[in-house]
Amino acid sequence: MPLTLNDFDYPLPPDLIAQAPLAERSASRLLVVQPAEGGADALLDRSFADLPEFVGPNDLLVFNDTRVIHARLFGVKASGGQVEVLIERAVGPHEALAQVRASKSPRTGGILRLADAFDVEVLGRVGEFYHLRFPAGQNLFELLERHGKLPLPPYIQRAAGAEDESRYQTVFAREPGSVAAPTAGLHFDEGVLARIAERGAKCAWLTLHVGAGTFQPVRVDDLGEHRMHRERYVIPQETVDAIAATRAAGGRVIAVGTTSMRALEAAAQDGPLEAGSGETEIFILPGFHFQVVDALVTNFHLPKSTLLMLVSAFAGMDSIRGAYAHAIAQRYRFFSYGDAMFLTRRNEAENDAV
């Protein structure tokens, strides 16, 4: 029987949605899901600071080094009507795709005055987004940094504050371009990274810029009709070489976050993993054949979301259902500022049987 949207639903008490970060990054809880053959998974309630205990000396952790930009802007149309702009992604040095909220849709050729500081031209529509041209001669990301606001996810019921400027970025964020944080990486601090190195494990990096589409719900019951948003990624040669060395040494490739997993698996769909850049709209459902990733560090994801489908494909639907039920009963904190899981890939025979 084909999977439907309701197969990925679960009841979540609203008070378990984390509204703010903890005082320390690695003070988050960590639910370790250890698959057991022919029996129930072992579910270990630990602290994220304990993660290095589950990392072996030949393992490789792959991190997403994207940096969240100040993607939310407020302004007015030439008519005086209020507008709110949320950048989806840059598509050139002075152009971007964006969501635009206004009482009346902006027209092609129209001008928006943003932050009472600069004008952008509406070039047209690209699907659900508006194509905007920013002032020439000024760096797009610098403009956003000066005049934009940090965009928190829609389920955080408050405006971004001073604390979010640092805490909604990973400690290794380098490449600007995301409108949402790769949230699994938010738990890592220098102490955890140092203990991982002490155990002999290695770290590697890639970049995937997370778009605003990551928060868009699946609106079709037939999952075969859903279309993913596109995200741009870059995988360096050093990371490809590190993965090859890890395989040769018998270690595991551990993706830190679903964004790292999406980049790696997308780049390996048509053959061996190669360095380079591209765009992906990969949709990972149960039955997907994973080529690269052996284990995953991830947060807890929204009901009926594509990310919940992804982790169900990776760890098995029954395992994820059991783990989420346990997390709710134990009052774990959910979503971007919430707690984390450590998952091991379920063998493909079990996934195919779903």
Rank of each mutant, 00 (worst) to 15 (best):
K104L: 04
Q99C: 02
F288N: 08
A329R: 14
G250Y: 12
G316Q: 01
R125S: 06
Q82K: 15
V292W: 07
A115I: 09
P2Q: 14
P35V: 02
P35I: 00
R247G: 04
L223C: 05
V120M: 05
G224M: 05
V220S: 14
G185V: 12
A263S: 15
A204P: 13
P35A: 00
G177Y: 14
F215Y: 14
A313W: 04
I17P: 09
G137N: 12
G161S: 07
Y130V: 01
G287P: 04
Y130K: 01
Q82C: 02
P303L: 05
R195T: 12
F8Y: 13
L86G: 09
H226Q: 02
Y233S: 04
L206A: 06
M309G: 03
S26R: 15
V311M: 00
D318L: 00
G287L: 04
L43Y: 00
L22M: 10
A212E: 06
Q82I: 10
T66C: 06
D50N: 02
L296C: 03
D7G: 12
S319N: 07
P11V: 13
L302N: 06
E145A: 13
E88Y: 11
G185F: 11
L143M: 13
G211Q: 11
F118L: 03
S277K: 15
F141A: 01
G185Q: 11
D50L: 02
Q269V: 12
D189A: 11
A102T: 04
T170H: 12
